[in-house]
Amino acid sequence: MFSERTGYIIWVNDVKSARSLEKYGSIHYISRKMHYVVMYMNSDRADEVVRNIQRLPFVKKIERSYRNEIKTEYERNVPDKTRFYSL
């Protein structure tokens, strides 16, 4: 139902022209101070889209986000000690 999405951090020279990246994927955040764009795109077409984005004159560098590879499910092996510290 949902396609797999991949996040990319795109470092740009000009934030105003970074709005034109919307046609390549969905823009999640644009940092005006640090000049980068966080955007998500479909994983199956990500390689060719990254090649097209790299050719744009205002793009400095593209980094892939590793957020979907980080483990987000935690297990508690240590017993809860908060009840011992209550007043």
Rank of each mutant, 00 (worst) to 15 (best):
S43V: 14
N13S: 11
G7R: 00
S26G: 10
V15T: 13
K60R: 15
R67F: 08
R19C: 00
R76L: 10
V38T: 07
N77D: 03
P57W: 10
E63Y: 15
H28R: 10
H28K: 12
I62V: 10
V38M: 07
V78A: 03
V15G: 01
R55F: 09
I62C: 03
K61I: 12
I27F: 00
L56P: 00
P79R: 13
E4D: 12
Y74G: 09
F58E: 05
S65G: 08
N68P: 00
F58H: 11
N42W: 04
M34I: 13
S3Y: 08
P79V: 02
E22F: 05
V78D: 05
D14I: 00
N68G: 01
V59S: 03
A46C: 13
V50C: 09
I53G: 07
E22Y: 12
K81V: 07
D47E: 15
Q54S: 15
R67E: 06
T72Y: 08
F84C: 05
I30K: 09
D80V: 05
R67L: 08
V50T: 15
V78L: 06
D14N: 04
V38D: 07
K60C: 11
I62H: 04
F84A: 08
E48N: 09
Y66R: 14
R19D: 02
Y8R: 11
L56V: 02
S26H: 14
I27R: 00
S3E: 08
V15Y: 05
T6W: 00
D44Y: 14
R5G: 01
M39N: 11
F2K: 13
S86Q: 10
P57S: 13
V37N: 11
D47R: 14
D47G: 11
V15I: 13
V49M: 15
S65W: 03
M41A: 06
R5P: 03
K16D: 03
K33F: 07
N13V: 09
N77T: 01
Y66S: 07
F58C: 04
R32L: 11
R19S: 02
D80C: 04
E73K: 06
T6D: 01
